Computed example of a mutant assay.
Amino acid sequence: MRGVSTLEPGERDELLERLEDYYDAVPRSGARTEDFGALTLFVREGQGWPFYARPTRGWRGEVTAAEVNRVRVRQRELGIPESFEWVAETAPALRAVVERSGLAVHAHPLMVLSPDVPTPEVPNVAGGVALRIVGPDDPVLPSALVVPHLAFADPGTGVGVAGVAELAQAVRAAAGDGSVERSAARIRAGLTSVAAAVEDGRALCAGQHQPVGKVSEIVGVGTLPAARRRGLGLAVTAALVADARSRGVETLFLSAGDDDVARIYARLGFCSVATAMIAEPAA
């Protein structure tokens, strides 16, 4: 099973329902919710990656433009990003409504690793880089949390400018903001698992998965731009797969940045099953 899923329609519908349950559950360990009828706004408690609004779980009607605009007003009041996320196949009419509100919509391949796909071997990486699951007291945790931010600020798969000096500066800038302590607490509680490719005591690439029961999503896999093209992202993803499987996860999924990134994940056995949508103000 490579690239594109061969699931029957009924199997895919069941899988997407399982993912919708997960999408509704996973933010609740770190956020409060606000009800806007057809939409639920997740508001993070404390610092960290901001959350978003999603279609309310179990809501059977369509999302209206008025509800989208009400959420956007509330997000501005709270000083958080005007961000919406959903799966195109489970809310097919939402894209047009969101675009009419003036937001830009981005589509990403939603990929799942089938339970019958063997756990992939973690690829070897050269140059003295070590792969490891990062514990709550691991000194590499601060750089493992920061490096994805540098990666996403310079998107794509090509080698970029930001290197170890920028990484060290970003770690210093984040010191004292509580992010390390919060992440360490989540690791201890089994809510988050972090994997990193480490060289000279710093994470050149890192990512996470966040299990809820037997479902987990791999998120935030990012490589320091200057360290790209070394296979680190693939290796970290494989390490996260192995860790998730060791924890009893049966349904493992992720959203790829684009089709080029999706082809990398397909090498580990992930298959595209749907389309993850993200809406935000145009740049």
Rank of each mutant, 00 (worst) to 15 (best):
Q169D: 13
L240M: 09
E121H: 11
P136H: 06
W86K: 03
I278F: 13
M277P: 09
E11K: 08
L113Y: 09
A126D: 11
A31N: 14
E11C: 06
G10M: 08
V147G: 03
G79C: 04
R57M: 09
S101D: 13
G163W: 05
E17W: 09
T33H: 05
A25F: 02
P9Q: 07
S179T: 13
T275L: 10
A276R: 13
A53P: 00
I278Q: 12
F152Q: 02
A96N: 13
V198Y: 05
V180C: 04
D35Q: 00
D138A: 09
G269M: 04
W49R: 14
A168S: 15
P120V: 03
A206K: 06
G190L: 11
L78E: 02
P123S: 03
A174N: 06
H108Q: 12
A93D: 15
I218Q: 04
E77T: 09
E67L: 08
E217Q: 12
H149K: 10
A38G: 14
I80K: 03
A130W: 10
V112R: 07
G135R: 02
T119V: 13
R245F: 07
L78K: 03
E62W: 06
L167S: 02
V221S: 05
G163I: 03
L15C: 01
R182A: 14
F152R: 06
A66C: 05
L252P: 02
A130G: 14
V129M: 01
R100D: 07
L41D: 01
V194W: 06
L39P: 00
R28G: 14
V134W: 03
L7P: 02
T90V: 10
V261P: 01
L15S: 08
A283H: 14
E20G: 11
F51V: 07
I264Y: 11
T157C: 15
A244F: 10
V161K: 10
G79S: 07
